[in-house]
Design a protein around this nucleic acid. Structure first.
Length: 569
DNA sequence: ACCTAGTCGTCAT
DNA sequence: CGACTAGGT
């Protein structure tokens, strides 16, 4: 879902241009987005476990375009699905399965047109497909990282560290995570659109946008609906901005909305708090130190319930696991060895067809992924030597607007009025008793005193409102029974890379209980890890011998016929 | 003017 | 996922 309606409302500050503008810089790539679009070209093959290189070629083509413009890509992959989204993921999985059945039905009826449409709905991006891309990236010497959880915070983290100079993605959520330079709407000809955070002050359609704090922007997103919250019915992005500007804190907004007869979900506060945690402290990976981190540091003094934090932001497993996970060696969800889709299919085939073992000595052995590798050609390339032809890019057919936007007197005035750091302390103090903002007030004095006055306040009489910590009693929810015995084992779930949003209609209590249950299910079954750690990554995903098999499948020591990699292009 | 819920395209020829 | 749109408030 993203934050619906955010991008259109930022139209004024969308700078049209081309990748030329980013020559010499490094951009984070939202790989899932690219893969998702590629999937439509081979949805049928993907659903039917038919080998295909189409989705890989589509990515290679984009890489070629970036390199044509002298842009260094830094690929970012989605990692494990957050525990808080597991039920959403199940819903999606179900829908895909239904679409897949529909597709096969249409297929039998000979209606390939409709079948393909259903295949498109059924196809999903898997970690095995992501691994296929990683193999190519290794060969090209292109950097990448698998996010511990969602790619969005990982990309923003890279931008924060200065490892990348901007983020190439279609997802408006990135702005809520704190992205400074978002490059969207990249076309095949290299044209794209930049949204720069520094331009927020120039947006006229949303008054005072430049002076909303990160926390306030999060609240706006959460009110109107984002990846983590359903939002309040009847509240879109515009109303949300107005409400936050007017009332600034969640209690007042809630009261105002209720007095208007708006229905607010029972667990809304929970959703808000959880979303607030996920937006700020989600687990990310520091590629240079190879350490698990959080997008922003926890506040100095905080009483965060770390169990809840781990549910919303991801679990802190041992660092060794994350090193392997974030370097693409293991499946982020199952922690089994990650095998590329191509290799996986090939070995299945060779096993089932009992193929004559091919002379494998022809292929040199290779180390897996070492960061200082000399680019090598993958086996796929060797067998199908026609790499995507170098054709010049279509000339961009846009006029480059020099969007230097003269500051209007009004804007200047606003800028002046709001240059002092706006107050914090909106939203609930559910988890965080004192909430220093990471990006602004962390640097200035982060007052222990919750300050509810804001420069953004427009027409509210400064009624001294006590920070009604009526929320505190809700903490009971988190102490509430951890021992729900109904762990529905959703066995393998999490083969697909999941992203984004939506509906959850459960009570808070159920919610938390379920989170904790799903956490257990997901992270505390060490048995699955033990099995997977036996195999050595080096034996796998290399253009050489050795059938890499899922830990569950019987691993024989037959040799893969390398000719199976010669897919038609 | 704003919100919503639905549909469509995404690739690549 | 966003873009776009018809149809609601």
């Amino acid at each position: 879902m993203g934050v619906t309606g955010l991008l259109p409302n930022l139209k004024e500050i969308q700078q049209a241009g081309t990748l030329e503008r980013y020559r010499g810089t490094t951009l984070a790539i939202d790989t899932y987005g690219w893969l998702h679009r590629s999937v439509v070209s081979c949805a049928h093959e993907l659903c039917m476990d038919i080998p295909t290189k189409k989705y890989i070629n589509s990515i290679l083509k984009k890489i070629e375009m970036l390199q044509h413009f002298g842009v260094t890509p830094y690929f970012v992959f989605d990692g494990a699905s957050l525990p808080t989204k597991s039920e959403t993921n199940l819903e999606r999985k179900l829908k895909r399965q239904q679409a897949r059945q529909q597709a096969e039905t249409y297929m039998k009826q000979g209606n390939s047109k409709l079948a393909f449409k259903e295949f498109m709905k059924a196809a999903s991006v898997t970690h095995a497909m992501a691994k296929s891309i990683m193999v190519e990236l290794d060969n090209l010497g292109i950097k990448y990282v698998v996010a511990p959880y969602e790619a969005d915070p990982q990309m923003v983290y890279l931008e924060k560290l200065g490892i990348v100079d901007g983020i190439l993605s279609e997802d408006s959520d990135l702005l809520v995570f704190g992205c400074r330079r978002l490059i969207t709407k990249l076309k095949d000809d290299g044209t794209c659109v930049e949204i720069n955070r520094d331009d927020f002050v120039k947006v006229r359609s949303i008054p005072y946008l430049g002076s909303y704090t990160a926390e306030q922007i999060r609240l706006v997103a959460m009110l109107s609906g984002c990846d983590y919250t359903k939002g309040v019915g009847g509240i879109g992005i515009k109303s949300a901005f107005t409400l936050v500007r007017k009332y600034n804190n969640l209690q007042k907004i809630t009261l105002a909305l209720q007095s208007e007869g708006k229905q607010i979900p029972q667990d809304f506060k929970y959703q808000i708090d959880c979303a607030n945690l996920a937006f700020q402290y989600q687990k990310v990976f520091h590629p240079e130190s190879q350490k698990l981190m959080t997008l922003n540091e926890y506040p100095e003094r905080h009483d965060l319930d770390m169990e809840v934090v781990e549910l919303c932001c991801g679990k802190s497993l041992d660092n060794e696991t994350y090193i392997r996970l974030c370097n693409g060696e293991i499946n982020p969800n199952t922690h089994e060895l990650l095998v590329s889709r191509e290799q996986s299919l090939a070995s299945l085939k060779s096993n089932s067809m009992t193929l004559k073992p091919a002379p494998s000595d022809a292929v040199a052995t290779t180390a897996n992924r070492s960061r200082s590798d000399i680019p090598k050609r993958s086996i796929i390339d060797m067998l199908s030597p026609t790499t995507p032809e170098k054709r010049p890019f279509k000339r961009p057919n846009v006029v480059y607007k020099t969007h230097d936007m003269k500051l209007s007197p009004t804007i200047k005035k606003i800028h002046k009025l709001t240059s002092s750091s706006p107050a914090e302390g909106i939203s609930s103090k559910f988890f965080i008793k004192s909430t220093p903002e990471f990006d602004s007030s962390m640097l200035s004095d982060s007052s222990e005193v919750p300050d509810n006055s804001s420069p953004l306040k427009v027409n509210t009489a400064t009624e001294e409102d006590v920070v009604t910590d009526e929320d505190i009693k809700d903490n009971e929810y988190y102490e509430s029974s951890i021992n729900s015995k109904g762990f529905e084992l959703s066995d393998d779930d999490g083969e697909e890379i999941e992203e984004s949003p939506v509906k959850t209609t459960t009570t808070t209590e159920e919610y938390v209980t379920r989170f904790k249950a799903s956490l257990r299910e997901r992270f505390m079954c060490d048995s699955t890890y033990a099995a997977s750690t036996i195999l050595k990554p080096h034996d796998i995903n290399v253009p050489t011998k050795g059938p890499p098999v899922k830990a569950t499948t019987t691993s024989t020591t037959t040799t893969i016929d390398i000719r199976q990699f010669a897919f038609k292009r």
